[in-house]
């Protein structure tokens, strides 16, 4: 049963959208762009799901894949929102890090200031300069914590 139908056409468009957004996802270096690509790829998968299923149903609506796609849309928006939250927090951490470094440079003269805190920033800062994969259990390098051992 291979003939042109609305369902078949949109399933094909869905496949093209998947390929196109895969290209964008893998080539783009920007996090938000990748997220957009993820969303469009999802839409492509959803189109394939409904379109392909309905070609099997003589072009009549099939409630099951439509319900699955509704679930999929909600899952996709959850994932997108989560990604955005993490991106925002990451950006904030970056800005704070940048400003702290600036601060350290500015206050280098005033030696009596808060030595412990500065050491903390310096130590962890140099860790990541080496490599982005040398992730330590970062809270443990925290000078404010754990000086007196176990809290128990």
């Amino acid at each position: 049963m291979i003939s042109f139908s609305v369902d078949f056409w949109y399933a094909g468009i869905g496949a093209a959208l998947i390929a196109l957004s895969l290209l964008a996802f893998l080539l783009s270096k920007r996090l938000l762009k990748k997220l957009l690509a993820f969303n469009i790829m999802g839409s492509g998968v959803f189109l394939m799901m409904v379109g392909m299923a309905q070609t099997q149903n003589d072009g009549a609506a099939d409630a099951v894949p439509q319900a699955l796609v509704l679930t999929g849309i909600v899952v996709a928006v959850s994932a997108t929102a989560l990604a955005l939250v993490v991106i925002r927090r990451f950006a904030l951490a970056s800005v704070v890090a940048a400003l702290a470094a600036e601060n350290k440079a500015a206050e280098n003269d005033a030696a009596e200031n808060d030595a412990a805190e500065k050491n903390g920033a310096e130590r962890t800062g140099s860790d990541t300069a080496v490599s982005d994969t040398t992730v330590t259990d970062t809270a443990l390098t925290d000078p404010n914590l754990n000086k007196n051992g176990d809290p128990q």
Partner: peptide, 29 residues
């Protein structure tokens, strides 16, 4: 702003952390 930047990291109840744990970068530019 530098001062307040430090306090975001340490005094907000998110945890007691040193200001700026690592290098500096931005999520999306």
């Amino acid at each position: 702003s530098v001062k307040s930047g430090s306090t975001v990291g340490s005094d907000n109840g998110v945890g007691n952390r040193p200001p700026g744990n690592s290098g500096k970068a931005e999520a999306d530019h």
